[in-house]
Simulated scan of single mutants.
Amino acid sequence: MEKSRFIELMAKSMGKSATDEELLELETFLDQFPEYRKTQNVANALKVERSKYRLKEKDLNAGLAKLWDNIRFSEGTVTPSEGNDPAEKQHVKAGFTWYWQWTAAAAILIACFSGLYEYSARRSAVLTLPGTSMLSVHVPFGKTRELVLPDGTKVKLNAGSTLSYPQSFSGNTRLVSLSGEGFFEVTKDHHKPFLVITEHLSIRVLGTVFNVKAYPNDKNIETTLLKGKVQVELKDRPEKNIILLPNEKLVVMKETSGDGDLVGNKEAKIEYQLRKLPNIKPEDIKETAWLNNRLVFINENFEDVAKQLERKYNVQMIFDDQTLKTEQLSGVLEKESLDNALGIMKMTTPFKFRIAGKTIHISHK
């Protein structure tokens, strides 16, 4: 079977227009070449998953046009110019355009969604490992917690974090799921890679020391590597594997944009930066200061600092004046009470605060 015939049958199968004979032809081919079965599984999953992942119409159209140009001249495709009748030319052209748009759409969908589907399946697998009891640890605001995983890996969880992991690691990988912030000292096992799955990325290691900050309501996701080497895979860009070396930090920015997608919903756009850590003592690195109950912020927006204060002190901070959210703050907090911490911050940024139970109101001075 030629590649174009396989794509055609896959497109018809997805569009529910394949005849019984064509479905049998496709099934026979997949039995003979089981390596293509994975593609079919992805396509079938799209019927269920496509509502979860939005593809912008302009991106789809651009991809269709590009793929159409590539396919049109491959594998002996018949072109309308071989005939003499203009009406026949137009009819053939329309037929081939429609046909290849179907097959191109199938190919593009498979390419775009296969990585997303595999990532989603991998993430859900953390909570659905057959025959394995799952454990979930949640740390409330104002607290941190240390634990040891079944393989000996040590984890410290920051406030407002949740870690899910199996009671025992089976299979070829050690999968855990993290929402929030965790510091990992992974036990080496070259035969069983350790994977940390978050909402937007996964981190693959063999044995190393690193910090992951992936709170759902934060604008950025941070992976900071102190020892060893890790490979980071972005959910929205599964083809892009980013290798981190010691004293490097990967910052993934989550932005909400777009009003031109298929259903009018906003879609997440992810960009990233790879940064070197400053050449300072390990205990002074702000990314891991929380391990020693310290909070370090350098030229950070007040809004982002407020989220860290909420987690550290178990409070809710409300900006009565929204313009204060973008004020830049720098400082170090350690054993101060909340009242003293806010007093220190006021020395560099003029504002006033009012404490009402566990709610802090921030306004201009």
Rank of each mutant, 00 (worst) to 15 (best):
R122K: 13
N44F: 13
K89V: 10
T103S: 11
S81V: 13
A62G: 09
L109I: 11
A106Y: 12
D20V: 10
E57Q: 12
W102G: 12
E21P: 07
T128Q: 09
A105V: 04
K16S: 15
R54L: 15
V48F: 05
H91S: 15
V48Y: 12
E118W: 09
A43W: 08
S120M: 13
F29M: 07
T97I: 09
P80D: 06
W100F: 14
A111W: 04
R72S: 11
G95P: 00
R122N: 08
E25F: 06
E57V: 15
S17G: 04
T103Q: 10
Q40L: 15
A11W: 00
A111G: 11
K66R: 15
F33H: 15
D69V: 13
E27M: 09
R123H: 12
K56G: 01
Q101K: 14
E35A: 14
S17V: 07
G15N: 13
E118A: 08
A104E: 02
L24Y: 09
V126H: 01
S17K: 14
E82D: 06
S74E: 04
P80V: 01
M10F: 03
G83I: 11
V78R: 07
E25C: 09
P80L: 02
V126S: 01
F96G: 00
K47I: 12
L109D: 02
L109S: 05
Y117S: 03
A87L: 08
S114G: 11
A121Y: 04
L55H: 05
L64W: 01
T77F: 03
N44G: 12
S120Y: 15
A62N: 11
M14H: 08
W68R: 12
R122Y: 05
F73H: 11
L23P: 00
F73N: 07
E35M: 06
V78P: 01
S74M: 08
A43N: 09
S124R: 08
R5D: 05
R72C: 11
Y53E: 03
R123I: 12
K89D: 00
P80Q: 03
A87W: 06
S13D: 11
N70M: 13
L30I: 11
A11D: 00
M14G: 07
G63I: 01
